[in-house]
Design a protein around this nucleic acid. Structure first.
Length: 497
RNA sequence: GGUCGGAUGGCCGAGUGGCUAGGCAGAGCUCUGCAAAAGCUCCUACAGCGGUUCGAAUCCGCUUCCGACCUCCA
């Protein structure tokens, strides 16, 4: 039963057997959003992916501390202006007001996608002293230099000392060394193009600023993650995650900073999620190749033919592995919608089927098949969290669920014990691990159920009189408002289209 | 230009040195007043060219094409 969990480690570019530093416990850090703008779909996919990873690790019984930061300071724009303060100027708001607004929006979106909150969600602005300390440590270790109040990480020195810069992102050290002089000319204060700022002296217009030993300024954008992961998870922890596009320079520099300050790398396993694509390309605001979650939910975009609810969008995301890029297309979303409904329908059937339908002997002919599908689901998840493969196995379970419902003889070929296992597995994965949830509120559901039962009852009378035109009228009218009636042997059922 | 990752049936997408992914769409059948759902059956692909091998879509090389990163990005 205890199959070993394998995780693809970006550091080694291989799947490795996962062994936590402390048995049974996991420290996991995921790079969170920069809250200077609305979350976009790509963010959502990454955080949904890590949410499922988190939930699966919980399910396996690990005690986890999951830390995901909020970046509310420190990213530089081309013009040297802090992104937070730029947002502030556009919106005529205080920087912290901007951060709060978009943090709220982010949290709201995470709830819509039914993800669990991290255990700690630290903000960069709340950890300025820790970041200053880290800069000091790096300086003390001789791996940074001060120019006009700003502090830069000395990559050449670092390479000399550890010979490991570029390992994570596959950069070749020699290439970094061979940067031309022409490049250097444009590098103002930096001694070498690959050097990066860890503390930046604020210009007069810069609103977000803190005192430090070197200047009134603000921290470099890679520093927050180094400082906060160290603070909450220790100098070395198990898993560090983030979007693939953060590998370089963000994660590479993070590793350098941690090594520079503490002498060793922060994380043992690095996980990177792949990009969400639209029209085969990474989404980008500047060239209009983008679709927001809101547009998707409302169906207001040239890229899609109709609205797709959050759970459908989430289900769509589950159908690709987290390390593969995923292209959003209308066709794929339609398929996801159909599948999502199929999965929710099976959930309902599972709830309603009586245990008496199944064989009360110790074992029955189809038990082995059922158990093997369940095993396959676990194997898929243990193999680098292969959600799409697990989903395909769950399609098999659905087939068993439907057949058990339709065919009493079929149900008798499954023992009650196996059926309970199947039920447990299906519920656990769909609801607890994948975080798929029914979308309407419960009170609405009660009312709708009552109304529908009434209508179905009335239509039954009509049908018994063979008044087909009235019967069809009811069915057609319901269809127009999105409800499909299904006449079966056992009576009429209904579902949303 | 450098680094990395891809190229799978009409579409989306797993996977693997020999044995069916799965789903969507499409065709037929069963059930059924009709419809829908469900079940069954069919459609059976791995960019191209070489090589390794008893055997490659899976390993190696080359070619073509695509994407990401190299600047802020999940």
């Amino acid at each position: 039963m205890d199959s070993q969990l394998k995780i693809y480690n970006s550091l080694s570019r291989e799947k490795e057997i996962f062994i936590p530093i402390q048995e049974g416990k996991i420290g996991m850090y995921v790079c969170g959003p920069t809250v200077y703008n609305d979350v976009h779909l790509g963010n959502c996919r990454t955080f949904v992916s890590f949410d499922i990873i988190y939930r699966y690790l919980l399910h396996k019984g690990y005690k986890i501390r999951y830390v995901r930061n909020i970046t509310d300071v420190g990213h530089l724009l081309d013009d040297g202006e802090d992104r937070m303060s730029k947002g502030a100027r556009i919106d005529q708001l205080e920087p912290m007001e901007v951060a709060q607004k978009y943090t709220n929006g982010f949290h709201h979106m995470m709830r819509i996608f039914n993800t669990l909150s991290p255990n700690i969600e630290p903000r960069a602005t709340g950890h300025i002293p820790e970041q200053i300390e880290m800069v000091q440590s790096i300086l003390d270790n001789g791996l940074a230099y001060i120019v006009a109040g700003s502090v830069y990480f000395n990559t050449l020195k670092f390479i000399e000392k550890y010979n490991s810069y570029g390992k994570l992102s596959g950069r070749i050290v020699e290439d970094l060394m061979v940067e031309t002089r022409d490049d250097l000319k444009n590098q103002d204060e930096k001694r070498h193009p690959s050097d990066f700022a860890i503390w930046i002296k604020a210009s007069d217009e810069h609103i977000m600023r803190w005192n430090s030993p070197w200047s009134v300024g603000f921290p470099g954008w890679h520093l927050e993650c180094s400082a906060m992961s160290t603070k909450y998870l220790g100098e070395t922890f198990d898993i560090h995650g983030g979007g693939n596009d953060l590998k370089f320079p963000h994660h590479e520099n993070e590793v350098a900073q941690n090594m520079g300050a503490c002498g060793h790398a922060p994380a043992r396993y690095w996980l990177h999620t792949n990009m969400l694509l639209l029209n085969g390309k990474k989404m980008s605001k500047s060239d209009g190749n983008t679709i927001s979650p809101q547009e998707l939910f409302a169906g207001q975009s040239e890229h899609i033919s109709k609205a797709y609810s959050p759970m459908i969008v989430k289900f769509f995301m589950l159908q690709a592995h987290y390390r593969s890029s995923l292209d959003i297309t209308d066709e794929a979303l339609i398929a996801a919608e159909i599948n999502f409904k199929k999965f929710m329908e099976a959930l309902k059937i599972l709830d309603n089927l009586s245990l008496d339908l199944f064989n009360n002997a110790d074992s029955a002919p189809k038990d082995k098949e059922v158990e093997s599908i369940i095993q396959n689901i676990y194997s898929a998840m243990d193999d680098d969290f292969n959600v799409p493969l697990a989903i395909s196995e769950m399609h098999q379970l659905i087939s068993y669920i439907n057949q058990s419902k339709n065919n009493a003889e079929f149900a008798k070929q499954i023992s009650q014990a196996s059926w309970l296992n199947l039920k447990e597995c299906y519920n656990t994965f769909l609801i607890q691990i994948f975080g798929i949830a029914e979308e309407s509120s419960e009170s609405d559901q009660v009312v709708t159920d009552g109304l529908m039962n009434l209508i179905i009852e009335l239509r039954k009378d009509v049908r018994e009189r063979k008044d087909w035109s009235s019967s069809d009228k009811i069915r057609d009218s319901l269809k127009e408002i999105g409800i499909q009636l299904k006449d079966g042997k056992e009576g009429t059922e209904w579902g949303k289209i």
